[in-house]
Nucleic acid binder design. Structure first.
Length: 385
RNA sequence: UUUCAUAUCUAGCAGGC
């Protein structure tokens, strides 16, 4: 049974949800762990209804089951549901408390998150990290640092997230000082610092760290490609891309985006087309980047071909960026009927799709339709941003 | 083998500078 569960985990963690489901259904003996694995996989995939259904149908629930559900609600900002489960739970442990605290942090209620933290019977380094993160998320890096200093134990994540917090608030020197004082660093720590310099415009220092890093991984390479590209240093980006011995889909996406953002849409499409040849699997982002390249250059024909490929692959347009990428493409190309058709085909529209549609009308001088679309927001239940 | 936090790479609209 443990091996079966291990297989289930492997499928789930590699995004092979339907394979996981088939395996689960074929299992004659299941324990709560099997159920928990599948429940979590659905929750992380955003299929909360399925996760809830599994939760209800489980013959035996353990603490991990409850925690998984609370955590899923927390991540989705469903505070009330998280709280309801938490209150019903009899076997609460430090994980439940931390998940509950995150639920409050997620909806921006720092006071309550803090109260939960003080109330919890025990805390571990994860609970502390979660609280620090809540302060960082609220834009309070100095408060976060005070907590960081009060923590009884730090792990690499605690250190690295503090470095990232400073960097995100433009305090690059603080970030570096903290980075230099870390007792040990992993690949994420190094990459965090590399990206911090890159986003600060100090590409050469980023490259120095990249060269010096003992834990250079694919993310480091991808980060440097983006760093060069966003500073217009396309040739250096391409050199790194070609030098990479192992690339992943993100590497390709980054390089395609690099071309697109530097007004080399045709090269972007050309690179996109070589992915097939090299046997790399495009993902949603790949298509979105390619569509963006088409939109910027008004390459309607290429865009339509990609649109067809997306439909053939049965990629979902809603609940993803592809719908709005297509609306944007058609809008920029002046094909409002196509844009509208995509928009209408979206089951659930989000604020970005709505904005894309408004922009499409606006860019083509159709003010009335733009306003009309804006007014439909209430009907669609969208809060404008 | 499963549950909580956390930190690093690519992507869509709008807005700001």
């Amino acid at each position: 049974l443990v091996s079966w569960n291990a297989m289930l985990t492997a499928y789930s963690q590699n995004g092979l949800l339907s394979e996981a489901r088939d395996l689960f259904d074929s299992m004659t003996v299941k324990d709560p762990v099997s159920w928990n694995i599948l429940l979590t996989a659905y929750a992380l995939d955003g299929q909360m209804e399925v996760a809830e259904d599994l939760f209800e149908r489980m013959p035996v629930k353990d603490a991990a089951t409850w925690n998984a559900m609370i955590g899923a609600y927390a991540r989705n900002g469903e505070l009330r549901k998280a709280r309801a489960l938490f209150d019903r739970m009899t076997q609460r442990n430090v994980i439940s408390w931390t998940a509950m605290m995150t639920a409050y942090a997620e909806v921006g209620d720092l006071k309550e998150a803090r109260r939960i933290f003080l109330e919890m019977p025990q805390r571990n380094v994860v609970s502390w990290n979660a609280l620090v993160a809540a302060y960082v998320q609220k834009g309070l890096p100095d408060e976060a640092k005070k907590l960081f200093d009060m923590m009884p134990n730090h792990d690499v994540s605690s250190w690295t997230s503090m470095v990232a917090a400073y960097a995100q608030h433009g305090e690059i020197d603080q970030a570096r000082a903290l980075f230099d004082s870390m007792p040990n660093r992993n690949a994420v720590s190094w990459n965090t610092m590399i990206v911090a310099y890159a986003e600060d415009g100090n590409i050469d220092e980023a490259k120095r760290l990249f060269d010096k890093s003992p834990s250079r991984d694919i993310v480091s390479w991808n980060s440097m490609i983006t760093a060069y590209a966003s500073n217009g240093r396309l040739e250096e980006a391409k050199e790194l891309f070609d030098e990479m011995e192992r690339k992943n889909t993100v590497s390709w996406n980054a390089m395609i985006a690099a071309y697109s953002q530097n007004h080399r849409g045709r090269d972007a499409i050309r690179l996109f087309r070589t992915m097939d040849v090299e046997g790399v699997r495009p993902d949603e982002v790949t298509f979105a980047v390619a569509l963006d390249a088409c939109a910027n250059l008004h390459l309607l024909r290429d865009g339509k071909i990609i649109h067809r490929e997306i439909e053939n692959k049965r990629l979902r347009l809603d609940k993803s960026l592809l719908g709005s990428a297509l609306i944007n493409l058609y809008g920029k190309c002046g094909h409002l009927e196509n844009a509208r058709e995509v928009y209408d085909s979206l089951g659930r529209k989000d604020v970005v799709a709505l904005n894309s549609m408004i922009a499409a009308y606006g860019q083509n001088g159709h003010v009335d339709e733009a306003l009309e679309t804006f007014d439909s927001k209430d009907l669609e239940g969208i809060r404008p941003n």
